[in-house]
Computed example of a mutant assay.
Amino acid sequence: MGRFEAMAVFVKVAEAGSLSAAGRELGLSLTSVSRQLAALEEQLGTRLVLRTTRRLALTEAGRLYHEQARHILGEVAEAEQALTAPESAPTGRLHVSAPTLIGRLKLAPLLPEFLARHPGLAIDLTLTDRPVDLVEDGIDLAIRIGRLPDSSLVMRRLGGIRMRICAAPDYLAHCGEPAVPEDLAGHDCVVFATVPGPISWPFQTAAGRVMVPVTARLRANDLDAAVAAALAGAGLVRAPSWQVADLVAAGRLVPVLAAYERPSAPVQALFLPSRLLSPKIRLFADFLAERWAGRDFGHEAEEGSA
């Protein structure tokens, strides 16, 4: 019995919910499916499936192995497709992860166009502001913002985001406008953060990049909520300039410390080195690079082109 064949049988059993249903889909007898599953469990030295007379359930090891096996089988199929039929239209499901705000406002509106171009593909989009593990979470391509530490992941720059610090006019009238980053020590700040702990905001000075601690009177794990609080006068907020561009143009928010803004943070596509040959990932990364064209979203928004 080949390991990949047994792995495919197990994945089908897990997804079909029974040995007999898996056998029908695979064109195998119930005895053959049962034998291959038992042999796989023996090779792995652990039980993958709990079988009773009425139902089938995966063990904890089975759930973990199912996710990994499904990912591996998908990679093998795509590698074979890339080598044997490089000109054929790709098919399958693409699992994409992105930060919530840029995913909702900048990525999701592009997906109908991509799907129309490639009718054989489907997309599962996960929007989250927590770091994802591409292997454990089954993600084919993740969009990340900011400079990342060295890793084994393949990174492709797609664009940039410029951050801006703003406050409501009433707040500035009452508390004054900071002239230099160090003035933030005397101000209330509305902070976007997904984990607890001290917060510092980065600035660009003549001496280079500096990190300035801020007082987080209000902390939110959603940027829309943070901007809404700043609009109501809760304090200074640091947000993507394209998110606050309309509010600034309407005079509802006032930018401060513009002379100390950092250069654009890169927006990057990340994927595993083993996915370099995947046609669907390559097509999607090319599509985003084409549509975003290395733009600085901050400048784009300020110019009214998005």
Rank of each mutant, 00 (worst) to 15 (best):
T205G: 04
A206S: 14
A206L: 13
A207N: 11
P213A: 05
R217Y: 07
R217W: 01
L218I: 08
A220K: 15
D222T: 07
A226E: 00
A226Y: 03
A229F: 03
A229N: 05
L231S: 05
G233H: 02
G233I: 05
R238T: 07
A239S: 08
S241V: 06
W242F: 14
A245K: 03
D246H: 12
D246T: 13
L247V: 11
L247Y: 00
A249L: 10
P255F: 04
P255R: 01
V256K: 03
V256I: 09
V256E: 04
V256P: 07
A259F: 00
R262Q: 15
R262W: 00
P263A: 12
Q268F: 03
Q268Y: 10
L270W: 09
L272V: 09
S274W: 05
R275Q: 15
L276A: 15
L276P: 00
L277M: 15
S278T: 10
P279N: 09
I281N: 06
I281M: 11
R282G: 07
L283Y: 09
L283F: 10
L283A: 15
F284K: 00
A285N: 07
F287S: 01
R291E: 12
W292L: 10
W292T: 01
D296R: 12
F297G: 04
G298R: 02
E300I: 03
E300H: 12
